[in-house]
């Protein structure tokens, strides 16, 4: 396990993933769950708290995650409903209460998506971290000012403080070395302004060899949420 993953495995037990809509929170949360499970972390839970999006929700990886040993919690229908009903499984509190269980909570985008955390606030006051995912290629967070605005609005909405920044600047199949490096520079700039540590730069697994010489903490993304046919250029 590298330093970032060890920190995620041994640091604060409850991890909430927040950020601007469409920055890649779900892909990061799912990849983190698979990586921790592969590193032998158990019990481990992924809580899908996205009730904004009708598609591309982490519960869609539920069967694969369960097979990897990750308990998945989402809606009151066991994640099997393809609806956007704003229901949550009451059992979500179980992994949050269980002090042996490491929990990753995947929130919906923007302050509106992060609002769901409010009903679980007491679990996030201690032994918890709030990770803010940043993607410079999204129009809503393409400047430090806008990204900071998002971050502060999410903090205001949840009453919690962001404890770490996750760099996830990408262009899907067009992501190259430059995107990852520029994204990391951007996230570090945000880090300097806020004093919040920049923890890692996400990188699609296939791109890792191109960044072998780069001196930055890379976190390999599995692209579990992206069906390959969507990257067929037409």
């Amino acid at each position: 396990m590298d330093a970032f993953l060890r920190d995620m495995a041994e640091g604060p037990r409850k991890i909430a993933v927040v950020g601007h809509f469409g920055t890649g929170k779900t892909e990061f949360a799912v990849s983190l769950a698979f990586a921790l499970a592969a590193g032998g972390i158990s019990p481990l839970a992924l809580v899908d708290l996205d009730i904004e999006n009708p598609y591309f929700r982490s519960r869609e990886q539920g069967d694969n995650l369960e097979q990897a040993g990750v308990r998945v919690y989402s809606d009151a229908y066991g994640g099997k409903s393809a609806t956007e009903l704003q229901t949550l499984d009451p059992a979500i509190r179980a992994p949050l209460e269980d002090e042996r269980c490491r929990v990753i909570c995947d929130l919906g985008g923007d302050p509106e998506g992060a609002r769901l955390l409010n009903q679980y606030t007491r679990y996030f006051r201690e032994d918890a971290r709030l990770l803010f995912v940043v993607n410079k290629n999204r129009p809503g967070t393409d400047t430090a000012e806008k990204a900071l605005g998002q971050l502060r609005s999410i903090e205001a909405m949840t009453g919690l403080s962001v404890t770490g920044l996750i760099s996830n600047t990408h262009l899907l199949r067009l992501t190259g070395r430059e995107e990852v490096l520029e994204g990391w520079t951007f996230t570090r700039e945000l880090s300097r302004e806020t004093g919040i540590p920049a923890l890692c730069a996400c990188c699609p697994k296939a791109l890792l060899p191109e960044l072998a010489d780069a001196d930055l903490p890379l976190f390999p993304l599995g692209l579990y949420m992206r069906p390959t046919y969507l990257d067929r250029p037409v």
Partner: peptide
């Protein structure tokens, strides 16, 4: 330059 957008936003 290219930016990353959700279909509906674009």
């Amino acid at each position: 330059s290219r930016i990353l957008m959700k279909g509906n936003e674009a």
